[in-house]
Amino acid sequence: MAATQTPDMKDRRRRKTPMARRESRFGVNLILPAVLVVALLVVFPLLWNVALSFQKARLIDIQDVSIWGFTPTLNNYRTVVGAHDFWPVLKTTFIYTIAGSILSIGLGLWAALSLQKAFKGRAFVRGLVLFPYVVPVIAAAFVWQVMLNPQFGIVNEWLGRFGVPAIDFLRTRSYDLSVFGLFHVSIPLALTTVIVFEGWRYFPFAFLFILAALQSMPEDVNEAALVDGATLSQKFRYVTLPALAPVLSVLFLLRFIWTFNKFDDVYLLTGGGSGTEVITVKIVDWMLGRGNVGAAAALGMILAAILLVVVGLYFKFFYKEETA
């Protein structure tokens, strides 16, 4: 990360001259407020969360919850894991996270490829495409709710013109789709809708990263491929895609982590109903809905543990191959 250090700076660190010491003190002084803020408001609460997860803590007697003086118990973990919907929620979370990440990156890649070459008005379209990502999540979620509304939403109005009966996209757990009357499939409609929202909202993020990577690609490789007679699809398959692999892989990791931790989107779209409940929504439900702070903390610990394992696996299996 600090690869930009000059050799000269490294030398300075080895010698502990009075000037170096003064420099060191100066650096520590500058960073102290930031470290204090993070220690007090992130690290300390994290540790406290560990404590909370092992004690009986209710929302109503929150004033008496103490950090040290409690008898440790595993009850919260038992309650949380034993809940009838624990495994379904976990499964939903994974489907939502993986599908949402892939969809947003896929759309981002498609958009970046389309907008790669300069044309008149490209800057304008590029700014436009960022809209879904920039708009406050609450406004985005509610306009989707209204667009998908079965009574007066524009989507159902348009579908109605093709003779499709009104569909309540965000409140239908599973929807039976018959394909030309030949075979029937049942799709988890509300969950699919939430995933599509996720793809729509976050594709600009992937788009920006991929576009930057495309534009920093050396032109001669492309030209060489063209001279060799590669068609556009071959060029994409054998030149562009391999070159983008590192960016795509980092994007997937980032999107996975952030989507896994995401609360607002699902909560605002469906409130966690109709088979869309993810872990974060469940945590807030334990906390505010049922007033069980200890259980919420325990589920939070489980969320963090899963995330840690997934990220660890990612680094073990994917990261090395790319840098090698």
């Binding site: 408001l41 992130v42 300390f44 609460p45 994290l46 406290w48 969360n49 909370l52 803590a57 929150i62 919850v65 896994f260 931790n261 609360f263 974060t280 945590i283 807030v284 906390m287 702070v293 919420a296 903390a297 939070g300 610990m301 969320l303 963090a304 995330l307």
Partner: peptide, 12 residues
């Protein structure tokens, strides 16, 4: 890091 985990103890 997950925001939700920090939110609970901060609330308390």
């Amino acid at each position: 890091f997950p925001v939700v985990i920090v939110a609970i103890p901060l609330f308390v």
